[in-house]
Design a protein around this nucleic acid. Structure first.
Lengths: 112, 112
DNA sequence: TTCATATTTCGGAAATAATCAAATTATCAA
DNA sequence: TTGATAATTTGATTATTTCCGAAATATGAA
């Protein structure tokens, strides 16, 4: 993962609304949530919400698919894992044994 | 952890220079690095670097201490763990068994 | 085709962040 | 105290982000 990609991803999480959306999606699992549900739930106009979701998706933190007229969003666990691995890579100066369990988190999460 | 705190922390990581600094500190472990080393290593003026380090520290991602005339910085593993736990809390809709190893990462890292 | 629904794209004003130079603070040595 | 070194704070300028409304796109129903 490139440093610029990672910075973009953190930038996507650096906003209360987007962070709330992402956390909801992490908790939701693979079933996903339609875009409009967030707009209503969080009380934000659809265009702004769309902008936020697009940002999260470009950062590989969420993924989306269409079902009829709705676009469903779900957390991208694989992308999230890559990001967190990048952040904590080679923790503690090449002594991973003192950072046990740091890598490989999110493995096994239902994802796409 | 409050959502606003977490957003601030991600904002601190949403910058290539700060991300590079943080990753270096994560790899460095508890021994820490003097502020000036970064300024030189990354090719940025000391005042800007100081600003970046202060931002990371306010976000509980790094901590610092003075040794004589130098101020050393190290990753704050405990703060980092809190942030990542917040991000991935209740992963997969209350079924943590499918996100095994997600929480408690960074436990055991040398920190302050 | 025509209308309604769901979402995205565009445009531009307001708020926020990044940068560097200059001045300031803190420490130590002579 | 004076001078040198290490880092921070302040201040001004420039760049980026955020927000919403309006218009556009995509899908499905009548």
């Amino acid at each position: 993962m490139k440093s610029s990609e990672a910075a973009k991803a953190f930038s996507a999480l650096a906003h209360e609304t987007r962070l709330a959306v992402f956390r909801l999606l992490v908790q939701q699992g693979a079933s996903g949530v339609p875009a409009g549900v967030f707009a209503e739930k969080i009380g934000i106009v659809p265009s702004t919400m769309s902008h936020h979701l697009a940002l999260l998706e470009r950062a590989s933190l969420v993924r989306s698919w269409r079902i009829q007229r709705q676009i469903f969003y779900a957390a991208d666990y694989e992308g999230t894992r890559r990001l967190l691995d990048f952040l904590t890579e080679d923790c503690c100066h090449g002594h991973p044994e003192i950072c046990g369990g740091l890598h490989g988190m999110l493995e096994g999460c239902q994802s796409g």
